[in-house]
């Protein structure tokens, strides 16, 4: 691709010497705007925009991993709390899923709270409920009449 020849359409009038004036776009390290990136992720989630699935081509000559012999009597599932040495305060309780819709700023605030607390999300919820109950008395977080 020739970059120095004159442009027959007069485009070389822009900038100097037949080239664009690139001075405003000189390469220089740019930092990602994390606030905008988080906002974009929240909007994507809110709008039902999907996360791309990797479309990786499987290497043709990849050798198959040898099949592992089945360990008889070994637990097939591991509990992450066991591995991390965290006591499960509700060992007998089944887990139920809680889905809720909230305004995006509230969701962002929630995520930040969970991230900062470095504990499972349900523990943050539990602490919030305890704080509410401490303020207004037990049952304050229950049904309102």
């Amino acid at each position: 691709m020739a970059g120095t020849e004159r442009d027959q359409f007069g485009f070389d009038a822009i900038g100097k010497g037949g080239d664009l004036d690139l001075s405003a776009f000189e390469p220089r390290p740019k930092s990602i705007d994390r606030v905008s990136a988080d906002a974009a992720s929240a909007v994507a989630e809110n709008q039902g925009f999907t996360r791309r699935t990797p479309a990786r081509a499987e290497p043709k000559n990849r050798a198959k991993a040898p099949a592992k012999p089945a360990d008889k009597g070994r637990k097939r599932r591991v509990n992450i709390n066991d591995l991390l040495g965290i006591e499960d305060r509700y060992p007998e309780s089944e887990r139920a899923q809680l889905n809720l819709l909230a305004p995006v700023p509230v969701v962002l605030r929630w995520r930040q709270l969970v991230k900062d607390a470095s504990v499972p999300a349900w523990e943050v919820l539990e602490r919030a409920m305890e704080a509410l109950e401490a303020k207004s008395g037990p049952g304050a977080t229950g049904s309102q009449s």
Partner: peptide, 29 residues
């Protein structure tokens, strides 16, 4: 994107033509 900023004058991004998160992430920058 950060790496390209040290080398290029322009980064031109072309996402998939679908509602996808990649599009919004790059749009934010």
């Amino acid at each position: 994107i950060e790496g390209a900023s040290s080398w290029a004058h322009f980064v031109i991004a072309d996402p998939e033509g679908s509602p996808n998160e990649w599009l919004t992430q790059v749009a934010s920058q």
